[in-house]
């Protein structure tokens, strides 16, 4: 190499190294992304991520269990007594405090994801100490508003995004 070159000064070769390296990294990343993104939910999975449910056949005091995104959804038509009971407990010292009114759009209809917030089991309806749901896996008790009352589950049963299309039709998702 020539002795006249100043070592501190960036050379043309340094520039070439850095730009080549940078292009290489960007190129590798742009190839890597499709390889990673293919793991994410695909179009066919996303396409069925919204369902419509006819709720006209549900009698007061009973419920319907439907599948949404591979998980069960409980649509429960509550009686006046059940609503009163849920509201009565609003101000108790709950593990995950939430008022009943904040968990429903219409008081009569409770819509919750039937997946225990503990480790993902499916709680059984109309069972447990609070007559709401009971998870057989590790003994979590939920009340008539789907709120956790006793057991290892940390939070209330999740309320999915939904809307009433009409009085007899609910769109979930």
């Amino acid at each position: 190499m020539s002795d006249t070159l100043d070592d501190d000064k960036p050379t043309r070769r340094d520039f070439l190294y850095i730009t080549t390296g940078a292009f290489g990294v960007v190129g590798a990343a742009s190839v890597a992304w499709p390889l990673i993104d293919q793991l994410n939910p695909d179009a066919s999975v996303k396409a069925v991520s919204t369902i419509e449910v006819d709720i006209s056949s549900i009698e007061p005091g009973s419920f319907l269990k439907v599948a949404w995104r591979g998980k069960p959804i409980y649509i429960r038509r509550r009686t006046t007594e059940e609503i009163a009971e849920a509201e009565k407990d609003d101000n108790l010292n709950l593990p995950d405090p939430q008022k009943d009114i904040d968990r429903v759009q219409k008081k009569e209809w409770l819509v919750v994801v039937g997946v225990c917030t503990h480790l993902g089991c499916i709680p059984i309806a109309n069972q447990g100490e609070y007559e709401g749901w009971f998870c057989p896996c590790h003994g979590s008790h939920y009340d008539i508003s789907g709120r956790i009352r006793k057991g290892p589950a940390p939070t209330n049963l999740e309320v999915p995004p939904y809307e009433f299309v009409s009085d007899s039709l609910i769109k979930i998702g």
């Binding site: 990673i36 793991l39 994410n40 939910p41 695909d42 999975v45 991520s49 995104r69 591979g70 998980k71």
Partner: peptide, 13 residues
């Protein structure tokens, strides 16, 4: 979780 599952629950993907 969704990336590992390839969906919203354990399924075909």
């Amino acid at each position: 979780t969704q990336m590992l599952l390839g969906g919203f629950a354990v399924d075909n993907p």
